[in-house]
Design a protein around this nucleic acid. Structure first.
Length: 745
DNA sequence: AGCACGCCGACT
DNA sequence: GTCGGCGTGCTC
């Protein structure tokens, strides 16, 4: 018997091994094994049964050991790993490593305890004989005979004051049996249990929720792969629909994965979910999965799922790899959240992996969001996903009014670069008179600032990477943080030649000063990392604010941490452009969510809250904000924009790194490669490169040249991998494909 | 990833 | 003459 093994040793190659007689019976796909590689022994995963085609069988070494008697990767996850390897162009061994928790991989010893129980009952005469000849054994027998279930060995022995010798004697006679069992560490000891005890009774569903829940239940009953996109406005009660679906899946005997963005995984949410799940499926453990678990907790949770003791896992991104058995339902809450993207190798998108895993298991995928990602929305429009809608808010609260203020007009009116617009100042005055509160929100992210033209709104971007360039004051240059390209900071706007260039990087301090000028009698507090350096200051300020001792709170993202302020009826976004043009395209989405969250609660009674957004690029912000108010309208215009402009909805950003010593040769091959890519993708491909300034460290050390491609097509990645395989590279040039899974469909 | 093999510069 | 630099290749 010969097996192919993926060694977890840092190189991505399938190696073959003989299976010794003793290990043959237990051998199967997905097992974690130890295998010799050269002088060492490493962990590996059995990925194939059968002999190699390109290696002499007689030179094969034997498998050293089977680490666990059951597959560390069940069949579906093994298949998923292979798909990911192809789809994300990532090495398979790395994917296997991310799928199996470290503690499991290292074959960590399980915390075990031995349980004692009776193997058979003794006849009365046998018992009498035993009492005479071996009184201690008889005591043990009597004790165990009174127990309803197996008891821990250590406990029994200490209670009876006996030693293991007594147990051994009885075992030899076949009267007592010993079994090993794992000690549950997860039970409910992860701190999540103490969050908040919430009444567990199910809420009554409104008609829309009811219809949605029934539709999902029907999909589950079909027992085939399907994906449902649940588009429900903020506060429409999506969670109740998830819970009904989970209920249905559990009742059908299946397992469930419930993904939430990492930030949403707070003790309160988990406790709430858990109490509801308890009510739905009494006796079923719900495993919580996130990055802050200890090794032991992770191990226990993993085992509970792998053995079927637990059938539900709630967790962040990586919970999609939990070894849930008989998977019937995968829920992805807030499916548009960028937190689902892993941006280290292996790069993957949790939501997309979830959909594919559902497909492999013929399970149901349920994606929920108030603002679906464009790719999911397009999939729904194309009929690939079923679209369900929840249009009514359960709590009947009004959405906030959003004003977008064009700061270019404001600048003309005030003849200076304003910090606060008239609109915002007026709104703040009204709040102050009514004794309501205001939050001014400013996104200053570190020292990064960008170049903005106050006449035309132009923001300088890197020509290779399409991200905003960052201004570095020390050497007066604009630099791209992705590829390292740099150019001198311009004196006039490169687009409209206007000299009115502004370097963005507005601080909370300046905003505070401005507010003092317009509202001299107001109590103002500033909240950012500088002023909050003192330990409990943060908490203090939040408490004062909540108690109404502060009228205006000026702060950075950290305000979002204490979100629930019932008396806040106005939120001002001082400088929307900073967040929208930050060199991390994910940041704008996050900031955005935060604002809408604050604003969504800003209503008072029947009066809606107000949000004032100050911006130099009103079109962009209008689109962003309409995304929440009118998602369909947003989606339509955004899709058009992306099609016409540079960011199609399914763009993959592909970094292609060429390595070699001869620049001319590199140039030649990059062009050749580009031609081949174009042949396959036609006009959907854009070649941008070479990068003028490859990342220094890499350049010095390996003399790499960095080239970037961007391509827009749903099939780009698999096709590129195919291309890579058939493209013949000369010996002195190597290339690496790195794919950022932006909006994979 | 590790580790060996191998081919060019400064040293017990 | 060797020791050791890291560039290259292999691991069943």
């Amino acid at each position: 018997m010969i097996v192919g093994v993926h060694p977890l040793a840092g190189f991505d190659k399938l190696l073959h091994y003989k299976v010794p007689e003793a290990l043959r019976a237990g051998m199967q796909l997905g097992l974690l094994v130890r295998v010799p590689i050269g002088p060492r022994v490493t962990l590996g995963l059995v990925g194939q049964m059968g002999a190699p085609t390109d290696f002499p069988v007689e030179k094969l070494k034997p498998v050293t050991q089977i680490v666990y008697p059951f597959p560390a990767l069940p069949a579906d996850l093994l298949e998923l790993a292979r798909w990911m390897s192809r789809y994300y162009a990532a090495p398979l061994d790395g994917i296997i490593e991310t799928m199996i928790p470290g503690a499991v991989r290292h074959g960590a010893a399980l915390k075990q305890e031995k349980l004692l129980s009776l193997a058979r009952r003794l006849a009365p005469d046998e018992l009498a004989a035993l009492e005479k000849r071996a009184p201690q054994q008889a005591r043990l027998y009597q004790f165990l005979a009174q127990q309803f279930k197996a008891q821990p060995k250590s406990l029994v022995l200490s209670r009876l004051g006996q030693t293991a010798a007594v147990v051994n004697a009885l075992m030899k006679r076949g009267v007592v049996q010993e079994e090993a069992q794992r000690v549950e560490r997860i039970a409910y000891a992860d701190g999540f249990a103490h969050g908040e005890l919430v009444a567990a009774q199910p809420h009554a569903l409104n008609a829309e929720q009811q219809a949605a829940a029934e539709a999902v239940a029907a999909a589950l009953a079909e027992e085939k792969f399907s994906v449902t996109l649940l588009h429900g406005v903020t506060g429409s009660g999506k969670t109740e629909v998830y819970l009904r679906a989970i209920d249905a899946a559990l009742k059908a005997g299946g397992g469930v994965v419930f993904l939430v963005p990492e930030v949403a995984l707070t003790p309160q949410t988990v406790a709430r979910l858990r109490s509801r799940l308890e009510a739905i499926a009494p006796g079923h453990q719900c495993v919580v999965w996130h990055s802050h678990l200890s090794e032991g907790e992770r191990l226990d949770g993993w085992f509970a799922l792998a053995t079927g003791e637990a059938r539900v896992v709630v967790g962040a991104r990586s919970a999609i790899f939990a070894p849930v058995r008989d998977l019937r339902l995968i829920v992805v809450d807030e499916e548009h959240e960028p937190a689902y993207k892993q941006d280290e190798t292996p790069r993957y998108h949790g939501r997309d992996v979830a959909v594919y895993r559902a497909k492999l298991n013929r399970a149901v995928g349920l994606l929920g969001s108030a603002t679906p990602s464009l790719e999911s929305f397009v999939n729904a429009q194309a009929g690939k996903y079923r679209l369900l809608r929840l249009t009514q808010r359960v709590d009947a609260r009004k959405l906030p009014d959003i004003d977008i203020v064009d700061m270019r007009i404001e600048a003309m009116r005030q003849r200076t670069l304003p910090t606060l617009s008239r609109r915002l100042v007026d709104a703040m005055h009204r709040r102050f008179e009514r004794k309501e509160q205001t939050i001014l929100f400013i996104n200053r992210r570190g020292y990064s600032s960008s170049m903005l033209c106050t006449d035309c709104g132009q923001v300088e971007e890197c020509e290779h990477c399409s991200i905003t360039m960052t201004y570095h004051r020390a050497d007066e240059v604009l630099r791209c943080h992705l590829c390292g390209a740099e150019r001198p900071a311009p004196l006039v706007c490169p687009k409209c030649r206007s000299p009115k260039i502004r370097w963005r990087g507005l601080g909370t301090q300046r905003v505070e000063e401005s507010v003092r000028r317009v509202l001299p009698r107001a109590r103002i507090e500033r909240m950012d990392t500088d002023t909050m350096a003192k330990k409990n200051r943060f908490r203090e300020v939040l408490m004062e604010f909540r108690a109404g001792k502060i009228d205006v709170l000026v702060g950075t993202q950290m305000i979002g941490k204490g979100l629930d302020f019932p008396n806040v009826t106005l939120v001002g976004l001082i400088d929307a452009d900073i967040s929208m043009h930050i060199p991390d395209f994910r940041a704008n989405e996050r900031t955005f969510q935060l604002l809408v969250q604050v604003a969504g609660r800003a209503g008072r009674g029947d009066r809606a809250g107000e949000v004032v957004v100050q911006t130099f690029t009103p079109q962009a912000e209008a689109i962003q904000f309409s995304r929440h108010a009118d998602f369909e309208g947003f989606a339509e215009s955004e899709l058009k924009l992306r099609r016409d402009f540079r960011y199609p909805p399914f763009r993959h950003l592909i970094h292609h790194l060429f390595r070699g010593q001869n620049p001319e040769k590199l140039q030649f091959f990059a062009e050749q490669w580009a031609k081949r890519v174009e042949q396959v993708f036609g006009d959907r491909v854009e070649l941008r490169g070479p990068s003028p300034s490859p990342i220094e460290k890499i350049k010095d050390h390996y003399r790499w040249q960095v080239w970037y491609f961007t391509a827009s097509a749903t099939k780009v990645v698999p096709e590129l991998v195919k291309l890579r395989a058939e493209f013949a590279w000369p010996d002195d040039i190597t290339q690496v494909l790195d794919v950022d899974p932006v909006n994979l469909s």
